[in-house]
Write a protein that binds this DNA or RNA. Sequence first.
RNA 1: GUGGGUUUAGCUCAGUUGGUUAGAGCGUCGGAUUGUGGUCCCGAAGGUCGUGGGUUCGAUCCCCAUACCCCACCCCA
Length: 454
Amino acid sequence: MATKPSIPKGTRDFAPVEMARRNYIFDTIKSVFRLYGFQQIETPAMENLSTLMGKYGDEGDKLLFKILNSGDYLLHANPSALENRDSVKLMHDISEKGLRYDLTVPFARFVVMNKENLVLPFKRFQIQPVWRADRPQKGRYREFYQCDVDVVGSESLLNEVELIQIVDEVYRRLKINVVIKLNNRKILSGIAEVIGAADKIVDITVAIDKLDKIGLDNVNAELAEKGVSAAAIEKLQPIISLKGTNKEKLATIKEVLATSETGVKGVEECSTILNLAEQLGVATEIELDLTLARGLNYYTGAIFEVKAKDVEIGSITGGGRYDNLTGVFGVSGLSGVGISFGADRIYDVLNQLNLYPEELLQSTQLVFTTFGENEFAYALQCLKQVRAAGIPAEIYPECVKIKKQMAYANGKGTPYVAIVGETEVAEKKVMLKDMVSGEQTLVSIDELIAKIKK
RNA sequence: GUGGGUUUAGCUCAGUUGGUUAGAGCGUCGGAUUGUGGUCCCGAAGGUCGUGGGUUCGAUCCCCAUACCCCACCCCA
């Protein structure tokens, strides 16, 4: 035997059971997106590296999968880079394309390229795989699907609220208990400003983000290590350990941030979003969480994250507002807000909680089993009628022992089997067997169709 | 990029303080039952014990190297 085949690290095959489950997730998400007026687009798996590089920070550049140029790529490579084994320099010469790292940047590129044809505000959704070259671990893959939904070209906070409604509706349909965490970049900026460490905003928020994981003392230690002054850390304490309802929190923050114009704006945005969500009857719990600090590189307003309540898995949906989405591609003045559903993690959550509808894998409703050539020919005609009636059905394609044909139907989880022998053909009927109860009845094709359809 | 763990049948895993033919459950195939699946009963097939070296009379087991997968950190969905 040749060496066993395998697939690249961090990638997966999806067998029929898994596809049935994944499609259930995708279909649920898609139908909610459409309900809110979003339209689907797709972009290529590969983008020019010039589109991708520099958009995700240094860390992100390292995690990009690069595609080797076709042909004799070393012919045009910089000789000194080659000589000195300078991978970074050499890379520019031998690779000009890469696999997409997320769906937001390709979307921004798409908007810029199609600006003239788009009706603004443009509401798009996109469900495609993305690739990251980091080391796989639990709930983390090198190829995974994102389900992005974004509005570009509108600064209205209603967009934020509609995204919250979408989250609410998707998880209600999937029957997953979640909590939506809400924060605002402007509040974080205000905090940094007020404690006199405006330049340290990223360090501060990254440290605060770990509060749940490493505890207050360690957070403070990390802050000190990053060069935040003791006085600033002291000022930060009431904000880090903020408690109470969202309204109480906002009231407290508003006072603390009174001197920061940006901070106050952030507080107002949060209030507006929370109030509107309440008026519109969003059932999912929304928690104002100042320690939420994802995607700070580009978010400028609201920041969202959704966590499953009953499973320890990290965030299953995330997103936020990014002003100037298309600025890096030369078109300024377009604000966007969007979220991304992590399909692979939702899949893991549904698996752990076993929340799939029962009938997901029943592709075939009926299998015809036959005893010989004559019966087979007769069954083919019956099969045609059954399919015409819209019932997914099949026939065992070979004349083998009936036992084997039954085992096939059973193995596929088929609910009904039609047994066709000499007597059935003679009477123009079939023996319909209910595979769950084991009950058998002699019926005509019309009766069979009526029985399975109901 | 840093650190840890694993690797024995198709799958999930036992096991030998280094000693003849390496086991179980599940799955697969066959039979019981020549018009009936699943359940029950009987039987069978299937492993160079991840790979390459070393120690030893002898290695699946001990040592070294390597690969792969997994887990944690960083970061992120």
